[in-house]
Design a protein around this nucleic acid. Structure first.
Lengths: 204, 204
DNA sequence: TAAGATACGGAAGTATGATTCCGTTTGTCA
DNA sequence: TGACAAACGGAATCATACTTCCGTATCTTA
């Protein structure tokens, strides 16, 4: 997926199998514990030793990067699939945002990475993000052409807004509800006619 | 400020002075380094030994809590001051949000605390938040009564939205700009008339 | 199936930072 | 000003996790 063919081919069978196990284990552990998940835990969950984890991923960050890259890839996929939907364009875009937000909700590590941890991670996942962006670009253009989305919105705003939504997830604080946050934000992206103040009485 | 009178009185003069120094030093260091700031750094900046820091604040978290509480207190103050402003109510509220966001931008530790670190912190700052909420409640009601703010918004949404804005701050990622994020969010809170889709052609 | 290359496991090594401890210093009060 | 409590400083301690290392086990290929 992010690995060149040759490497996959030349690996021993057990190594290839373990790599998969590690990725699955990592997904599970990081989803549960966020970025503070421990490498020993990942190893245990994957059913291998820590040494093996490090053979495949030289650092913790490299492992996280792998997860993030694959998550970004699936964002792009969601967006591309949506291009085929035959509905009101703004609603299509909103649907993609909802689906992608739900992906993030499952995954503390990726959330953390998206939120601020890694310059590093950000840089190395550039290809995946660029590809996703292309699909998003089209979705946004369609919605704006249809006149149902605010015209000053740009694809570049999407990661930023999603970053905000992610911040809300994982909070147990009462009153925090990312679904609501997301809907408020989505709703704010609709094209609308401002209502002129009915009255501006500075009520006491 | 969060400390009962008696304690302040019964303290030795140097202790009282050092406590202040520590808070100032902590503000500076945490603002610069965020939650990963080190206690030794705080001590050095305050011009005292680590032991002294720990005499006043039993744990790092206790120190952060103190900073957060005082930040929340100033949020409330900003909101209360705004109650006296004689302008269009929604704009008054927006102004408060902008001012408070600017406070957060200066302060990595508080941001971190608001964003998710501490249940603990959240619980212990309840009084400050409650007080701030009262003022916010009035600002929101006025704006809604004036008809310029969406009616389904509640004060409880404010911390959540601010939490999202905070997530954007401190990012160096290109395209991330918390000012823009804030304006998008604020704008989304205005009362508006939806535009009916002009066309829903599923453009290719 | 035997030799050699790969990969594995997990104990030990390190690094980082919070927190504790205790001998020394400084305010306070009579 | 002398005695005592309160507070100080900062080296030493502890805890937590990442990462390394190397003896052992497992594949692969001829």
């Amino acid at each position: 997926m992010t690995i060149p063919e040759e490497v996959e081919r030349s690996q021993r069978a057990d190594a290839r199998r373990n790599r998969e196990r590690i990725i699955h284990g990592a997904r599970e552990v990081f989803a549960r514990d966020g970025a503070s998940a421990q490498m020993e835990d990942v190893a245990r969950t994957a059913g291998v030793g820590v040494g093996t984890v490090y053979r495949h991923f030289p650092t913790k960050e490299a492992l996280i990067t792998e997860l993030v890259a694959s998550k970004f890839e699936s964002f792009g996929q969601t967006a591309r699939e949506a291009l085929a939907e035959d509905r009101e364009p703004f609603e299509v875009l909103a649907g993609v945002l909802r689906r992608n937000a739900a992906f993030m909700a499952d995954d503390g590590a990726v959330r953390h990475a998206l939120m601020g941890a890694g310059e590093e991670v950000w840089a190395r996942t550039e290809p995946q993000r660029r590809e996703a962006n292309e699909a998003f670009q089209q979705l946004v253009e369609r919605a704006q052409r249809a006149g149902t989305m605010r015209g000053d919105f740009g694809v570049a705003d999407i990661p930023m807004l999603m970053c905000g939504i992610c911040a809300t997830m994982g909070h147990t604080v009462p009153g925090f509800d990312w679904h609501r946050h997301l809907e408020l934000v989505i709703d704010g992206l609709r094209a609308r006619q401002p209502i002129t103040a009915l009255a501006s009485e500075p009520t006491s």
